[in-house]
Write a protein that binds this DNA or RNA. Structure first.
Length: 198
DNA sequence: ACGGAGATGGACT
DNA sequence: GTCCATCTCCGTT
């Protein structure tokens, strides 16, 4: 069963339990389970696509299944484009649980963080910027296809569907100032790797 | 365990 | 000049 990326509201919970696979030449494979997502809908005042297409958000208006990667403050965030091309919707991946290649994730986080000496814990990848550091997701991956052909084998991000539909909970989204009331954040309620506790 | 402040850089108007 | 889909540290419980 392919993952339902037909629209962001359906895709955000459907992506819970799916596994991100990061392949990079010279690095061990990193795999991580998605435990927290947020939907950004068409005509959503909190979405980057609100107000139309610009250079920065252009891949949001492209086909579903591509990575939308943007920079905010010091870090980048990783989204999966959903819906028909032109609708400008996506799902933000907010937290993942490491499954494989954890040492490589810790090394990547250490590389990206200055002055950290204590060991990594649940803060390894429990946030949208942190997981991009742990998986070496960069601005250059903006627009990259995650599913099907067209990926770069030596530098790919791909997706394995969840083995079964996950039991989830929804809450309000985090870190936004507009359209705060809608419950468009989706989590695996028992996960220890959420960016915030329930 | 939780909350607030400051760092910070680019996109957009 | 303003606005952030954030992170980390350091304070207080």
């Amino acid at each position: 069963m392919p993952i339902d990326l037909s629209d962001a509201r359906a895709a955000a919970p459907a992506l819970l339990g799916a596994v991100l696979v990061r392949e990079k030449a010279g690095c061990p494979t990193r795999r991580a389970r998605i435990v927290e997502t947020e939907a950004y809908l068409p005509n959503d005042p909190a979405s980057h696509s609100f107000g139309g297409e610009t250079r920065r958000n252009a891949t949001m208006f492209g086909p579903a299944g591509n990575a939308y990667v943007y920079r905010i403050h010091r870090v980048v965030c990783f989204n999966i484009v959903t819906g028909e091309a032109g609708t400008g919707e996506a799902v933000l991946i907010r937290a993942v649980e490491p499954l494989e290649g954890r040492a490589e994730m810790e090394a990547a986080r250490t590389r990206a963080t200055v002055g950290r000496s204590r060991p990594w814990n649940y803060d390894l990848c429990n946030g949208p910027g942190k997981l991009c550091q742990a998986l070496d997701i960069e601005l250059s991956h903006d627009g990259a296809p995650l599913i099907g052909p067209g990926r770069t084998p030596s530098d790919s991000i791909s997706l394995q569907p969840a083995p079964h539909a996950a039991r989830f909970r929804s809450t309000v989204r985090i870190g936004i100032s507009k359209a705060k009331e809608e419950k468009l954040r989706f989590v695996l309620p028992d996960s220890l790797w959420l960016s915030r506790k329930l």
